[in-house]
Design a protein around this nucleic acid. Structure first.
Lengths: 338, 338
DNA sequence: TTGTAAGCGTTATCAT
DNA sequence: ATGATAACGCTTACAA
């Protein structure tokens, strides 16, 4: 049996209340001598308060939940570290759940988080409209949460995103300025808001340029390498595009592979723009032109927002933050020669 | 206030003991009718038992801790999913901690795990000898744990590793058979057992071949891209090696970059062997010859071992499992032409 | 400054 | 088959 507050109290000849007070750094109502005595015994016995017993009373667990689609997608480790680093600074630990983008596993995760009594949740929400679970979270059960990355078109929830429409616009405009007109577009899964917004940007850039955007040039991807590969095969086979804008770097990797299979050279025959600026795309040849967004920073900001809510109570108003994307032009895009 | 066992009891006109019994699926000592009545009310009120209160008594949290160096190293996401997937199957959730390979953060993580009352720990232990903390874990505090990947040369702890010496031997022998004699070796951090074992294999292959292994050809790396890059610069600059064996793929990526900077062609001028078979090294040109080891599987096995210990109590004997490595020959290695 | 005692939501023990 | 009650280890009124 491990040592409890009672053991300390007994050995110090004080009440457990007194021990509790020094434990919680109560300033008033405790004598210097007593405090020291208790502290010494705590040290001597290497006593650690039982956080579970504590949680029962305080209703706090000093734990936050983090729900993401899949840690194996290299975008998310960065995000996770951003969340964890900030959380740890404030003595919070993090519970991780992967949902694989599956609705059932997502609500299962949410259930689990509530069961574990997390104090708040950072949530890569991947659907366009709030689920029943999410509404309930915001309504009855009152667990604070912050959405991030994938988004929800609803200002009533706290969230951290980048300005995806702007990013989509930048990437497409870049390609248009390089004289490309047949620009393939490989989107993310249909329902994910960030993909929708990037598509809006893509279409807007076309509209501005006066060039018609071909319906056939837009293909739904899966944010995975495989989906990028398949979509690129279609695009390069039937549509003869001269450029492809993939909505994440992973799919751009797939585009590279498809191009290699088909003997198509990048950037001579095909320009490619990605999205995310993953660290390991330095390995690609030629180096990938892409949109920069910092998953780590998004994780940090979202967690800071969440912790603020936890500390200041629910009187903190929800807000949505949009980070500025930036474009990194490297070697995979090139002016189209007539 | 959320609904408690008392509310259910009151509404059902039974005692909380009875409710508790149906909650815990006690078969005996409960009538069919009562059970149904209680169950209905539980459903009606959407009651969820408070796991914290439960934990106070059962001393179980249904949570396991997972300590790794850094989730951003692409080896670990796979491992994490292996652990999580198995844990979830048995209704366990996982607490994640990154230590960045830092000793202080590691013992901090361990402390946290105990504070959170995890039932067991899966631990990428990165040092050659057991720390005081670890001894204590095995001794007094009796939290079951399973080590994995990086290892500890001590059969008295449970662990899951691959046969690193054999793997190091395979890789080096492959290079020797391709007529290379000046084979650079970029190891992991000095203290990590898996690196030591790989080095043993490297030296053994040389010893068997009768070719002397040059001391200068062995450079300590950091298991990161940067370290691989730096080490390769040294190796390629001063030592004129014709082949490099990097102790993980990440460092092999660095070798590729160094070679590119120096105008050295792979595999014509330099053969390269990596270690891990990371998914995204498909992106490399030429494709990397490497040692296959499944982080996912290691995570699965370690977690299965841990759960077995948790279920069957401490009468399960500790054991160390060594998985078989295999070699994947791709395009980055080539016979040395005289 | 310090202590007594109630209570958090369960499970476990022992009655009935 | 069911219930009363102690206990888990702590925090927090309230009292002294």
């Amino acid at each position: 049996m491990s040592v409890t507050i009672k053991d300390i109290a007994k050995k110090a000849n004080v009440s457990i209340t007194t021990v509790s007070r020094v434990l919680n750094h109560k300033t008033e109502g405790i004598g210097q001598a007593t405090r020291k005595k208790v502290l010494d015994i705590i040290e001597e016995l290497d006593y650690r308060p039982n956080t579970i017993a504590r949680s029962m009373i305080t209703k706090q667990t000093n734990t936050i939940g983090l729900i993401i689609p899949d840690i194996r997608n290299p975008f998310f480790p960065e995000l996770v570290r951003g969340v964890e680093d900030i959380a740890n600074q404030s003595k919070y630990s993090v519970f991780l759940c992967n949902t694989d983008g599956d609705v059932d596993r997502e609500s299962e995760s949410l259930r689990l988080m509530k069961e574990k009594n997390v104090d708040g949740i950072v949530f890569t929400y991947a659907y366009a409209s709030p689920s029943k679970q999410l509404e309930e979270l915001a309504g009855n059960s009152k667990v604070p949460f912050v959405l991030l990355d994938r988004g929800l078109d609803d200002q009533k929830f706290s969230g951290v995103y980048i300005d995806n429409e702007k990013a989509g616009h930048m990437a497409t405009k870049h390609l248009l300025e390089l004289s490309h007109t047949k620009i393939g577009c490989i989107t993310g899964p249909r329902d994910i808001p960030n993909s929708k917004d990037r598509l809006k940007g893509y279409l807007k850039a076309f509209a501005e340029s006066g060039i018609p955007a071909g319906e056939n040039l837009i293909i739904e991807g899966d944010y995975q390498m495989e989906g990028g590969y398949l979509a690129a095969k279609t695009l390069l086979g039937k549509e003869n595009v001269t450029a492809i804008f993939a909505f994440n770097d992973l799919m751009a990797f797939g585009v590279y592979q498809a191009a290699a299979d088909l003997g198509i050279r990048i950037p001579e025959d095909l320009s490619v723009v990605g999205f995310d600026n993953l660290k390991y795309n330095q390995l690609l040849k030629p180096k990938l032109t892409t949109i920069e967004q910092s998953a780590y920073k998004m994780g940090e900001i979202a967690t800071e927002m969440l912790l603020k809510q936890l500390k200041e109570g629910s009187n903190v108003e929800n807000k949505t933050i949009y980070l500025e994307p930036s474009m990194i032009v490297r070697e995979s895009t090139k002016k189209l020669e007539k």
